[in-house]
Amino acid sequence: MADLRLFINGAIYSGWESVRVTRSIEQVAGAFSVEVSDVDPWPIKPGDAVEVVCGPEKLITGYVDRVSMGLDESSHTFKVEGRDRTADLVDCAVLGGTGGYAKQSLLQIAQSVAKPFGIAVRAEADIGPAFLKFSTQPGDTAFAVIERGARMRGLLTTTDGTGALVFTAPSGKRADAALKMGENIKSAFLEADASEKFGTYQVRGQAPGNDEAFGKDVSGVFAISKDGTVSRYRPLIVMADMSTDKASAQRRANWERSVRSARSNRLVVTVAGWTKSSSGALWKINEIVACDIPLFGIKGARLISGLTFSRTLADGTTTEIELAGEGAYVPEPVSKAEKESILA
């Protein structure tokens, strides 16, 4: 199995007792931590450039966030933690372009926002047409601006291990491996949480009238979607924006029901090693994998939403795989107002 290497300012470091690298479809910046004991402190400081590499693949390209040291009478420890370059987009305000953009695509806007940080931006999915107008507000973080545009285009934002920002969508790609209890799953954890599920989802709004739509068609927009798996009385009302029509309201109600249902079961499995036994490639987020855990009543496809590659003296080398329902990350429906913000 390929070993994990840590490059800081171009110099390689190894020999640590523990390592942890986390990637998630819900996070635009991956994170890592490594720890070593009984050695002289390495000359590493916060802000140093870092690359975390496993075999030919880069997992993290970013910066050291923090360095910590501890000691007692018999030993001392040294720990390094950091994140992808894209963490700067999450942490920092956007300055250039404050006010808005006109007749620019999502990719152009994101590239403009990310340029001062030295972060590349690319798209793995259709970004849609240009925005007629896209507004920003003073105090917005760089990522808040980018994420708002991505939501309006029904896209997810993530990073690729090289420090770039990537626009993507649920890929539907099937992993060339399966997860099965008694074969490659060492342990499994299932949390069923119904606190965010409701029996009925009502979307209400009021659209502006015009020559084609007026009266009851716009004065009281209403849509409902029912979840038959919720047995008791649990209604949720979602207030839509002023331009929502009946069709948009129904799509939103159906989306609320299906996404909340898909996210209600959190499944985490742990497997030995960092790679798939079938291909020798690292496990990847945003892939669909067959999962078979009879005791949990699970047999079917799940989406890999998060990965944690780790190595400790106690547990060896393992991958913690977080799995969600296939529909957990279906993009939120675009409202009528947002559709009208684009160029024809």
Rank of each mutant, 00 (worst) to 15 (best):
M1W: 02
D3M: 02
L4G: 06
N9H: 04
G10L: 03
Y13W: 14
V19K: 06
V21S: 09
V21F: 07
R23I: 06
S24H: 10
A31L: 00
A31C: 09
E35C: 12
V36S: 05
D38P: 00
D40H: 05
P43V: 09
G47E: 13
V50E: 11
E51K: 14
C54W: 01
G55T: 02
I60F: 04
V64H: 13
G70P: 01
D72S: 14
E73C: 00
E73P: 00
S74Q: 12
S74N: 10
T77L: 06
T86F: 06
D91L: 10
C92E: 05
L95D: 12
Q108P: 00
I109L: 09
P116G: 09
V121E: 04
V121Y: 04
R122C: 00
P129M: 08
F131A: 01
L132G: 10
L132N: 05
K133G: 00
S135P: 01
S135W: 02
P138A: 04
P138L: 02
A144I: 02
E147K: 15
A150Q: 08
L156F: 05
T157P: 02
G161F: 05
G161M: 09
L165G: 12
V166T: 05
T168H: 07
T168N: 08
P170H: 01
S171F: 05
A175S: 13
A177S: 15
K180T: 15
M181Q: 13
K186D: 10
E191N: 08
A192I: 11
A192D: 10
S195F: 00
K197M: 15
K197V: 09
K197A: 05
G199K: 13
T200Y: 01
V203L: 08
R204A: 12
G205A: 04
Q206K: 15
A213D: 08
K216F: 11
S219I: 02
A223D: 08
V230G: 12
S231N: 07
S231M: 03
Y233L: 11
A240N: 01
S243I: 00
E256W: 13
R257W: 03
N265I: 07
R266G: 10
T270P: 04
A272E: 15
G273C: 04
S277K: 11
S277L: 06
S278E: 15
L282I: 07
I285G: 04
D292I: 01
G297A: 07
A301E: 15
R302N: 07
L303K: 11
I304N: 01
R311Y: 12
R311N: 07
A314L: 08
T317K: 12
V334G: 01
K336Q: 13
K339D: 01
E340R: 11
A344H: 02
A344K: 10
